[in-house]
Nucleic acid binder design. Sequence first.
DNA 1: GTGCACATGTAATGTGTTACATGATTAT
DNA 2: ATAATCATGTAACACATTACATGTGCAC
Lengths: 184, 184
Amino acid sequence: MKASSASALEFSLLGLLRHQAQSGYDLRRTFATTPMRHFSDSPGSIYPALRRMKARRWLNASGANGNARKRQEFAVTSAGKRALVQWLRQSVTREDVIWRLDQIMLRFAFLDGNVDRSVTHRFLDQFELELAAYLRELREHDKAFGPELRSSTGYLAFKSGIESYQTHLLWARQTRKQFQEAIP
Amino acid sequence: MKASSASALEFSLLGLLRHQAQSGYDLRRTFATTPMRHFSDSPGSIYPALRRMKARRWLNASGANGNARKRQEFAVTSAGKRALVQWLRQSVTREDVIWRLDQIMLRFAFLDGNVDRSVTHRFLDQFELELAAYLRELREHDKAFGPELRSSTGYLAFKSGIESYQTHLLWARQTRKQFQEAIP
DNA sequence: GTGCACATGTAATGTGTTACATGATTAT
DNA sequence: ATAATCATGTAACACATTACATGTGCAC
């Protein structure tokens, strides 16, 4: 059974709707005005996404009986909730860390209230592990190819990447500790 | 005159080719094995991109006379170089910081050898400014909506975002200083 | 009853992904 | 000669972006 596939946008909508049923316009406003604004708030992406998910029976629409162009609210169905949970429970892979770090953080943000704390623990463990491994890899590369370049902007950008991953690693460690203390 | 538009992938290919003429396969290997691996190394994206750029006269192909399926090397034309430089010289906007941080760093990486140091200076100045401004915005949001949430994974993910931007800001400051010292 | 914000829709376009196919070159 | 690797190609598909279009409801 392959992981239920859908775009990051769809899962972010699902996550927001799980928390509170609302309209496409409300969701757009959230994307436009909160720290989730790195998602696009364009109607051309959100409304089609909502329709796709409705067709998939992940969402129910209420209001606007027959009448399009009228405010309608979307709520997550049990199938939608299952899809969300399945997405959240996926393990954190090296590929996630390299190619989809933003999705990783999105998933973490939605863990609360959708899965129990053991999943959050596992998430942080795996995340920390993969981050540390990838950081080692980057530092190897630094040792091997860095010395001759120093101070080129290419090298400096690379260093920024390392710092960025290092910051995420520290965050993961600290957050994991915090969760351990919360449940003794 | 609108900024010459092309995908990030195309500019990354352009940047690599400026440095050294090479084949699509070589470029794929770079994407597959170096810290640039967060770009896709799939042939289905790279070869079409190369063809597009060749059609646009940004690249010249050598080798494989008439014969497809044979190794051919791509070199950047003067028009290609102009397009690259124009892309690199764009100013760093708030939108870049919010939606395209990765592209910002890619641009920085390619500054060397393509523009003079004054552009790099300006880049770092603007980047630092926009980062600082956006960070202030995020911290406002933290003060306004944070307190009641504490310790939810959503809030913790938000905090990770702040830390990440903070790291980039420190990098920008340090790097700018370094460039100032280099040229007294 | 006119204007403006609210709320949704859609068509054109470009591009990335996946998965597969196939020719060329080298080593055995 | 055959297998493996090098090197390129392409078709199907899904999605996001942009730009435009259109209806709804309230305020003045």
